[in-house]
Design a protein around this nucleic acid. Structure first.
Lengths: 334, 334
DNA sequence: CTGAAAGCGCTTACAG
DNA sequence: CTGAAAGCGCTTACAG
């Protein structure tokens, strides 16, 4: 049983209320009693009991991180790095985490059943969809949340952190163009995810602004997994249209694509260059090593927590929309 | 504000105490009032407030997971998979997680400063060392804990889950022997970690029981990282002793070793076979793909949580020592 | 089998 | 600037 507020109060000869005030940096405490209390706090290394405080303030001091279900699930290295950032930052502010794996199914019921939201101070959700029911859901519940990934339409009432998808994709494709490629295929993601659209937008923009021909036939759409990258690459090859490079909107798909290319006896990058997106560790170990655009997953995790805590504390003066720069990671597949 | 125990009590015409009893499956509640209460619980989808219960019972309902610091840190894919298992299982029992990254330094102070242990119901710690101060530390604190990895000496008073290190290593090396290798080098880990010793023990046992010569000169010791695997492989090559295979006690080191071998123009597996240990995803993407022993990281995470919750609940009748089988994963590097 | 009451460790109007 | 008191939502002896 560690030392409690009552103990401190008694020894300082003040009331618990007063101790509480100095702990919480309330104004209106005389310098004298503040010092007296603080000395005791030091002496006993007193730390307020988070759970009790939570009860009194109706806060749980725990954050929910809704992990996406398949196809892009937590084993995705990108999320793991993200999670790492979240975990560390939360610990820094001594928040706990709740990590329920929640299916992506577009059913509110699943949400409502699954998680005891009323015992969470806020949640981090990922992978915004084009029409994302979770936004209104959490707004109705009046539960603070931040999105990893921006929603399609810019809204002042939702807080998010994201990598610069359009810019990153643009940069990636422009690099391909600089290397002399003119026919550039694209393995994009499902249309329902905002990230797919944004990255595809960057691709298209780069093509058009560099006066290349945009060719519908060179576009296929996968599901962010290695398997789907492999499949879609096979389809692309089977179709017989010529291209000398392919841009996949996720590393996992790019890695699947490389495998398909090799299987078909097409040399990477000599006969077909491959550009990924994400910057997962795995890309440094493929043959050839994957050239890609790196998302700062760890930092995104930290920022998400910072924002969420601001939201929870009712702090209005911070940046509700943070976009972090991406960085071209030149390796050997282009 | 969701429905509370008081609300249920009022509507059922009983006291809060009674409601509490039926919620907690206390004996001695008449079938009649139990039913009355349960109906209301259903009707309002009442869920007890974990925080309040925690306060009353002096439990926080959160688990600590002490992530190891460098060299083997959380970005290690093995831990990430482990964490995934932990997170899911904890959520299933609606426990929260606290994930402070704590340095591995052998200083109690770091521990004491870092974490507010008195607000954790129990902790999971990883990577037991040969003489691990954490055991007595948590025992003195009287905080339930489970180890991922068995301690060196079998102790009835500590609870752990682990993969079968000796058996797994034995199997790996025996497979190498079956493939005709007789001079098998070993990149082991630092001596202070129990896992290093155990895996090395399996290696040695396989060598000796198959009547091969155990050669000290073929043993080097790394730090579980890719970088150190790379370094140690270079040293092994520089020493000039001949060998046709190498067993690394972690995949990360094995992957580093492959890189070194390639750099020196030694073909894998033709001129030197490489066997890893762990079964991380990355191994499926190296050239050649890594043959290894797979540890069930996810399951280990689940088991760790199950054990810890048993411990917390004062349940004595469960298996304090769980060892999960490992599985040879035959790919192309042997 | 059930209820009244005290308590878990804190916070927060209210009053002074 | 400070204290007494009620309250957060539950649990648990104690008494009946």
């Amino acid at each position: 049983m560690s030392v409690t507020m009552k103990d401190i109060a008694k020894e300082a000869g003040v009331s618990k209320a007063t101790v509480s005030r100095v702990i919480n940096k309330d104004a209106y405490v005389s310098e004298n009693t503040r010092k007296k209390v603080m000395d005791l706090v030091q002496k006993y290394d007193y730390k307020p009991h988070t759970v009790a405080r939570g009860l009194a303030r109706d806060l749980s001091h725990t954050l929910g991180l809704m992990i996406p279900g398949p196809p892009r699930d937590i084993t995705d290295p990108f999320f793991l790095e993200f999670l790492h950032g979240v975990g560390n930052k939360a610990a820094e502010y001594s928040y706990s985490l709740s990590l329920p794996t929640v299916s992506e199914k577009d059913k509110r019921e699943l949400y409502e059943e699954g998680i005891n939201f009323n015992q969470l101070d806020g949640v981090i959700i990922v992978n915004p969809k084009v029409n994302d029911f979770r936004i209104e859901y959490f707004q109705e519940e009046d539960l603070p949340f931040v999105f990893l990934g921006r929603p399609l339409k810019n809204r002042d009432d939702v807080c998010w952190v994201d990598g610069d998808n359009v810019g990153g994709a643009y940069e990636a494709v422009e690099y391909l163009i600089e290397q002399g490629h003119e026919k550039i295929a694209c393995i994009t993601g499902t249309d329902e995810f905002v990230a797919s659209r944004l990255r595809f937008k960057g691709y298209k923009q780069a093509i058009e602004e560099n006066n290349l021909e945009f060719d519908e036939n060179l576009i296929v759409s996968g599901e962010f997994t290695r398997e789907s990258g492999y499949q879609k690459m096979k389809e692309l090859i089977a179709q017989g249209n010529s291209f000398s490079a392919v841009f996949a909107v996720s590393d996992s798909m790019a890695i699947g694509a490389i495998r398909a290319l090799k299987e078909e006896g097409i040399a990477v990058p000599e006969e077909c260059a491959v550009m990924g997106f994400d910057g997962i560790d795995l890309g440094a170990y493929t043959e050839p090593r994957l050239t890609t655009v790196r998302q700062p997953a760890y930092e995104l995790g930290e920022e998400a927590v910072e924002s969420l805590i601001n939201l929870i504390n009712g702090n209005k003066n911070f940046n509700w929309h943070k976009v972090l720069d991406l960085e071209l990671l030149i390796r050997d597949s282009v």
